[in-house]
Simulated scan of single mutants.
Amino acid sequence: MNGKKKALLIAGGVLVVAAIANAGNGDDTDTPTKAKPAVKVSTSPKAKPSEAPAPIKFDEPNAAEEKQLLSKLHAINPGITVNEERAVRRSVNTCQEMQAGNSMKSIVTNTSARFTGGDATVDERQAAEVVKAVKDTFCG
């Protein structure tokens, strides 16, 4: 056998071995292949971390403001200051509503409901006074 024939036999053998090895790879050309879904590329610019809105920090009264607040709340309705810690916590909730930009009508209605219970019933007139006391003492 001459060199050319030998080279052709070796090359043919390599192709047969390659075809056999590739037969188990699931690359069946008789079956149509499904197209992979396209990757979605966003063209909108991403916000830079420095452009993210700052979290809202709600005011809380310091010791002097708390004392002044409790005095004003007691004058409005003594029942709402029986539990001073609860009265301050509810005042902070009222402040949160104001800082969130809720309507005054909504704030007054919610304040009335928030402070009513236990030892007190707070009507809308008193609730409006509570809102003013909160605003004047620490939530300005």
Rank of each mutant, 00 (worst) to 15 (best):
K132M: 03
N77L: 07
R90N: 12
M104V: 05
K36M: 10
A100W: 13
P49L: 03
K132L: 00
N110L: 13
D59T: 12
R86T: 11
N62W: 04
R86N: 09
F58T: 02
V134Y: 10
E129V: 03
N93L: 12
E124I: 14
G79V: 12
E66F: 15
F115C: 09
K67T: 14
D136P: 05
R125V: 13
A64Y: 04
K46S: 12
T31Q: 09
P37F: 02
A54Q: 10
K48A: 13
K132Y: 01
V131Y: 07
N77Y: 06
F58K: 04
P32V: 06
N93S: 12
S106N: 11
V82S: 00
N62Q: 07
C95P: 08
K57C: 00
N77G: 07
T121M: 08
A35Q: 08
R90W: 07
V122K: 00
T137H: 14
S50E: 12
I76M: 05
P37Q: 05
V134W: 08
P78R: 08
Q96M: 11
G26A: 09
N83P: 00
A54T: 12
T81M: 02
S91Y: 04
K67G: 11
F115G: 01
G26V: 05
E129N: 09
D27W: 03
R86M: 08
R125K: 15
K34Q: 12
P32H: 00
E97W: 05
S50H: 01
K40Y: 11
R90M: 09
P61V: 13
V131K: 07
K46C: 03
T94R: 01
S44Y: 06
V41T: 14
A52D: 04
D59A: 13
S44H: 02
R89Y: 14
K132A: 07
M98N: 07
D30M: 02
A128S: 15
N102P: 00
V131I: 06
G117N: 15
T81I: 01
K36A: 14
M104I: 05
Q99I: 10
V88C: 01
K72P: 05
N62L: 10
V82M: 00
T31P: 02
N83S: 07
K48C: 01
K135T: 04
V41W: 09
G118M: 09
A63P: 03
P61L: 15
V41E: 13
T29A: 02
T109N: 11
A127D: 10
R89E: 15
R125G: 09
E85H: 11
P53T: 05
S91H: 01
K40S: 10
S50M: 02
